[in-house]
Design a protein around this nucleic acid. Structure first.
Lengths: 150, 150
DNA sequence: AGAATAGTGTAAAAAAGTGTCAAATTGGGC
DNA sequence: GCCCAATTTGACACTTTTTTACACTATTCT
């Protein structure tokens, strides 16, 4: 129904990231879409089904002119790039996305994570860091977990 | 449909900035135009398809005489320069544009950003600064992102 | 006029991106 | 555990784009 799972895939020296077959199936089955739009946020990359992205973009486009709107363009909308899959299920990440997310050309290991309607991509190192931070914030307030039934 | 993407390109010692092939295609495909008009704004350079620029200029020209109009001329209209592409896809930036945007002759790295119907050009350093500021303002109010569906 | 500076044109090298095949790895079913 | 099919990764050739380099023209300054 949604993207789910954590995958250790790889990126080749030219910057093509392989996306898990599960996600590609999900994309066409549940989102009736064949393409992803990749943008950057919080040190990593985020990919949306193109159809979802268009809705987001339309909302931002419709905002009243001003700093908030300009900021969203600069940080999120302008960096967005539509990506198509090649025969092997890979997408080409732009140089600036690779720079942003710390994927320099020697790094091969990426982590691809399904998060509801989005797919997130991190370098393995960054992912470990982010996940550890999330875990420790959760531990600070164990009652939340208990209340949720975990 | 519009200019989109962030590119790390370069400027040569004589002040010619290379513009991404994607933007050149977009310019002729979606704007039916072959030239850009470059002006300056907020510490960086902004390029408009010539046809769009003419409309902007006409509006300002039609304004009632007064300080506001004079200011617009001084800050935005007068500095505007039409630029043509050479065979390698570069445009020559004037000395005053380079001065304005901090592109002195040793600096080689520029960032070219597609922002809806405009193309913005910064030195790499300035761009990093501007983007970081935009990101931190966005992070101050995370609810906005959530509401937009990011 | 001559020298210095700025800008232009072009070719060639280098870098980046694309397409495809085949090997390696993985995971599911038996 | 083993085998088969699917998926992922590595490799390589090719195309496109960007950068470098250098020669040439025009302009400015003395």
């Amino acid at each position: 129904m949604n993207f789910q799972g954590v995958y250790n895939n790889s990126i080749d020296p030219k910057g093509r990231a392989s996306i898990p077959a599960k996600f590609r199936e999900e994309l066409s089955a549940s989102f009736a879409d064949d393409n992803l739009v990749v943008t950057q946020n919080k040190g990593g990359l985020v990919a949306y089904p193109q159809s979802d992205w268009q809705k987001i973009e339309a909302k931002v486009e419709g905002m009243a002119p001003g700093q908030r709107k300009d900021d969203l363009y600069l940080a999120l909308i302008s960096p967005a790039t539509p990506c198509t899959f090649d025969k092997q299920g890979r997408i080409q990440l732009s140089q600036s996305h690779r720079d942003y997310s710390g994927l320099d050309s020697e790094i091969r290991e990426i982590v691809v994570v399904g998060v509801s309607r989005k797919i997130m991509i991190w370098s393995k190192a960054k992912h470990a860091e982010i996940r550890a931070q999330a875990e420790s914030r959760i531990e600070e307030d164990p009652q939340v977990l208990a209340d949720l039934g975990f």
